[in-house]
């Protein structure tokens, strides 16, 4: 690995966002991830084909001088994955620090946001999953001492919903109710279509009602629930994560919550959101996106996350008040 010449300067010249970005880049570099650099433009078709994967499907598009349609990048993962060669026998481990152009959910207008994150894809090994989750937690710890990572497993949640929902559209409606924690609505929606199924609906509701640190009591509850919902294989895979000391050692910062669900057509397996004190919204999100790889015709597994530096404004403002 090339090591650059060290430059000394006063850290005061860096604004908060840049300082945080450099801090995270250093963390990822030290953990074996190399920098991925991509341009600000991308083929518009990439986003048209995978619009459900985007945080927001609005894209700023324009014609290049040759007439081809381009877009200002609203996402980084799609660009990284579209360019990767899946014939390599290794896992690709990259990090990025890029501007993305998205519509703000609050103002409804486009804005440029700085996003730092990492991706691990290709021949991913079992130990890479706890590595990435741990780096997500370390990233949050560097943003604020008070942090929580909400963790779900989409394979478990979707297997459970699949027992009650006949079609993908029904599953999506049920997932939307679960995501908003509208438990009364979820129960009534499922009961109206599939009935109580000899008490199995109560078990499903206990899966989506569970919000807990991954202590032994919680994991026992999840195992019992999963065995009643025919999701033992999925549970065993999820459970292995907590055999890793980096994860079990940080259990007080983890909140297991199976109602946390990403887009069903792209994510499978682990899915997580990170929160820091006073941020008001998730400042980190990530998970396993093997289904995206398949949609792009690539082999292997994939897991990654993004840190939304533009969402740290609230945190900074409240720190200034103190």
């Amino acid at each position: 690995m090339k090591t650059g010449k060290k430059i000394e300067f006063d850290a005061g010249v860096l604004d908060d966002e840049l300082r945080t970005a450099l801090d995270l880049r250093q963390l990822y570099l030290e953990n074996g991830f190399s920098r991925s650099r991509i341009g600000k433009f991308e083929r518009y078709d990439l986003y048209r084909e995978h619009k459900d994967f985007l945080v927001c499907e609005n894209v700023i598009s324009f014609s290049d001088t040759d007439g081809s349609l381009l877009a200002l990048k609203p996402d980084v993962t799609l660009s990284i994955i579209s360019g990767f060669d899946d014939s390599s026998s290794k896992a690709h481990k990259v990090y990025y620090d890029e501007d993305v152009f998205r519509v703000s959910g609050w103002t409804g207008r486009f804005k440029c946001c700085r996003q730092v994150g990492l991706e691990c894809f290709g021949k991913v090994s079992g130990s890479d999953f706890p590595l990435v989750l741990n780096l997500a937690m370390e990233s949050l710890a560097r943003l604020d001492g008070q942090y929580v990572i909400a963790l779900s497993d989409m394979n478990i949640a979707l297997k459970a919903l699949g027992l009650f929902c006949k079609t993908e559209a029904e599953k999506a409606q049920a997932a939307a109710l679960a995501k908003s924690k509208n438990h009364a609505g979820l129960r009534s929606f499922i009961a109206g279509r599939a009935g109580n199924q000899n008490g199995r609906l109560d078990v499903l509701m206990s899966l989506f009602g569970l919000v807990s640190a991954p202590d032994s009591g919680c994991l026992d509850d999840v195992r019992r629930i999963c065995s009643e919902l025919n999701a033992v294989k999925e549970y065993d895979s999820f459970r292995r994560l907590f055999d890793d000391d980096r994860i079990s050692g940080n259990a007080e910062h983890i909140q297991i919550d199976f109602s946390l669900l990403g887009d069903m057509s792209y994510y499978s397996g682990l899915y997580f959101n990170g929160f820091v004190g006073n941020s008001g919204e998730a400042v980190l999100s990530g998970g396993e996106y093997e289904k995206l790889l398949r949609k792009m015709g690539k082999k292997g597994k994939a897991i990654g996350f993004a840190v939304y530096l533009d969402r740290l404004g609230n945190l900074r403002r409240s720190a200034e008040k103190c």
Binding site: Q146, V148, A150, K181, V211, Q255, F275, G277, S279, G280, E281, A282
Partner: peptide
């Protein structure tokens, strides 16, 4: 209703 980030830090109280 609950804020999605606040819920993570006050889950027990809110529940």
């Amino acid at each position: 209703i609950a804020n999605k980030a606040s819920y993570r830090f006050h889950a027990a109280e809110i529940r």
